[in-house]
Amino acid sequence: MIDLIVLPLIKIVIVLTGILVTVMYLVLLERKVQAWVQVRLGPMRVGPHGVLQPIADVLKLFIKEDITPVRADKWVYTLAPIIVLVPALIAFAVIPFGPEVSIFGKPVPLYLADLNIGVLYVVAVASIGVYGIILGGWSSNSKYPLLGALRSSAQLISYELAVTMTFVAVILASGSLSMVQIVEAQRANGVWFAFVQPVSLFIYFVGGLAETNRAPFDLPEAESELVAGFHTEYSGMRFALFFLAEYANMIVVSGIATTLFFGGWLPPFPSQIFGLVPGWIWFVLKTFLLLYLFLWIRATLPRYRYDQLMRLGWKLLIPLALANILVVAAVKVALTR
């Protein structure tokens, strides 16, 4: 009874709260990191060094007027941000934060579910998220958000292909689709997959940038563009959900990269000292380093034009990912001979 219902519920609550708080503070971190790169300070007024800024932002979004465009499709207009946010959150069900630990004598695995098709579950969930963007643009009943939404979602589904192919390469190396098994395979190997398959990591990361609509692939959202982004007509709570979803997606991408390429909860070297630090702390550390990379790239690089973006995805990344699979498969066959 406890194992079936209470324990998972507690884990769900912890994970969701953790994610939502992290998302809020990730927004602040982005503003701060960008500011420091740009020789300025970022939010400083609300709380010491702006630490309470996210609370101010959330409050502001809550109390904003709820505007629905007159001829917008009311149900879809409200549903769209939810369709974007929910997949971002439920993707955390398979991400392993740590190994099985024993709490009060009970062995508790530090993940919500160990699906035997864990990696595919993430892909499935990501492909549902695309609907929110399309519907968000369409339900605003305006031509330009619709075009922006279609471009955005075309970008997403194009880069999804390359990303899924890097998953195949990792699955070939680890021999299992389960996220926990992939981490265990990295422990058995002794080397993280990032060093075994750096090309996969590169393709995955670039694809992840495109999937989350982050710079340099953020043309559909940029303010200086003519065709307005899909969330132009949104304000208040609904916009907050879109915003949250974008950052939650960033955390998902980083979390998956950590699990698949950087050994999840494993310490850098299997030594005694490192072993003292609990696994989930390593996981959080690695994920944050990857998130920092996201922020760093946004502050540094200009953005690609839409056709250049699509050309990069289709003509460069997908062939590269296919070649990568070929090479990984060939090496694996050669090694098992």
Partner: peptide, 25 residues
């Protein structure tokens, strides 16, 4: 389970997105 996930990825997440594009355009 594999079939279930593939159903979501391919059918719900790919083919129907295509339908949606066409209908909207």
């Amino acid at each position: 389970q594999f079939l279930a996930v593939i159903q979501v990825v391919v059918y719900a997440g790919g083919i129907m997105v295509l339908y949606l594009f066409v209908v909207m355009l």
